[in-house]
Write a protein that binds this DNA or RNA. Structure first.
Length: 381
DNA sequence: TTCATTTGACCTGC
DNA sequence: GCAGGTCAAATGAA
């Protein structure tokens, strides 16, 4: 199962790939003299951009506008580069990947900025609402067993509903609740990112077994991962090659995607100190093995970052049509999930993953220009 | 001892 | 008032 490729990883890749593409451009420019200066200019622009981006994104966190400006510049440069490298499929492909990664980073930055803004607003309003909250809690506390915190239903920055056969998505989830849903035989399970507290990751997911296909689950992802699993990070750096630019502080908001890697299981096993049966390694690059997994993924609904979770009829439909979980009506995360899946679906397990293949699932333009949002999409090539 | 899951109670939004 | 979402004490596993 492929490892989660965080957007920061994408940034790492982008830095080296941009340079590589620029080199290709340079080589080709030498072959066709008129483009020579162009290639050089682009290469220096690219290096300048990533240099400034690296500075801008290094801790402490830079202003959002500055980061966005740099990222947009980078996207423009990459677009120009792509135009120059039309004759080379290899270079074009590389630039496509660069554009993809930049777009993911932009999405992440947007999500992080939105989250930060929201947090600030909450902090400001908390002072005012404290009296009200306290009052209400006191009233409830009289009858209740504990002083419940003043809760507010999360306002998700993005909602993505998928139908998957394998609940393993490479992320560490912690189950925090389970609820019987009306008209559904089995309960819906609620998960949040394990790193919610240590990295303030706001990602959540809700899982429900489908009614029409007992082997499938309707998984709703709410919010983007802003965490960065240390194990994942180490893995990413291996993939990134030697040219690494530190784009973010350890706790900076670098959203992960739902891309998964072959060692995801072991990573999760690490969380629980257990050993999982190793899955055959899957290549991060090359784009070869996507088809089989894509067959098991059905993207049901994509909602914009402005769409509230509960307001989408399609999402409601997805939830409504979802069927219950395993026999005990229970769904668990991480290791246990995988173990249970192996039990439910037979020892071999399933290779299906909740991710999208870059090559054939959606158009690059969709990402670049925002028709797909939320940062919850797999960045797999 | 630590951490994840379970589960009933509580809260919010409709 | 109801349904869905979240919290946190209790419980269990490693």
């Amino acid at each position: 199962m492929p490892a989660p490729a965080s957007t920061s990883t994408d940034s790492f890749l982008v830095s080296s790939e941009l340079v590589a593409a620029a080199r290709i451009g340079g080589v080709r420019a030498r072959a066709s003299e008129p483009s020579l200066s162009c290639g050089r200019e682009l290469r220096s622009s690219v290096l300048a951009f990533w240099g400034s981006a690296a500075v801008a994104m290094a801790p402490p966190p830079p202003p959002y506008a500055r980061v966005m400006e740099d990222m947009v510049k980078g996207r423009e440069y990459a677009t120009q580069l792509k135009a120059l490298l039309r004759e080379s499929p290899e270079a074009s492909r590389l630039v496509d990947r660069i554009l993809h990664a930049i777009s993911l980073t932009i999405q992440t930055a947007k999500a992080a900025a939105a989250a930060a803004e929201e947090e600030e607003e909450e902090e400001a309003s908390e002072v005012q609402s404290e009296v009200t909250c306290t009052g209400k809690r006191k009233a409830a506390g009289g009858a209740g067993k504990r002083a419940a915190a003043c809760r507010r239903r999360a306002q998700p920055s993005s909602v993505v509903t998928k139908s998957v056969r394998d609940l393993e998505d490479g992320h560490a989830w912690r189950k925090y609740g389970q609820k019987e849903i009306q008209n559904c035989k089995h309960p819906k399970a609620y998960f949040r990112c394990t790193h919610k507290h240590d990295q303030q990751c706001a990602a959540q997911r809700q899982v429900q077994r489908r009614d029409d296909d007992p082997d499938a689950y309707t998984v709703t992802y709410i919010g983007a991962h802003t965490c960065r699993d240390p194990a994942t990070a180490a893995d990413d750096e291996l993939h990134a090659g030697s040219r690494l630019i530190s784009f973010a502080a350890a706790n900076a908001t670098t959203a992960s995607t739902t891309t998964t890697t072959g060692n995801a299981s072991n990573r999760q096993a690490g969380h629980k100190g257990a050993v999982l049966p190793a899955e055959p390694p899957r290549q991060l690059e090359g784009g070869g093995g996507g088809g089989e997994r894509e067959q098991e993924l059905e993207l049901e609904e994509v909602l914009s970052s402005l769409t509230p979770a509960g307001s989408s009829a399609a999402t409601a439909e997805a939830v409504r049509t979802a069927t219950p979980g395993p026999d005990q009506g229970d769904v668990t995360s991480g290791l246990q999930l995988q173990q249970q899946q192996q039990h439910w679906f037979g020892g071999g397990g399933l290779s299906g993953v909740a991710h999208l293949g870059y090559d054939d699932t959606f158009d690059l333009e969709d990402i670049v220009f925002g028709s797909i949002t939320g940062g919850m999409y797999a960045a797999e090539y």
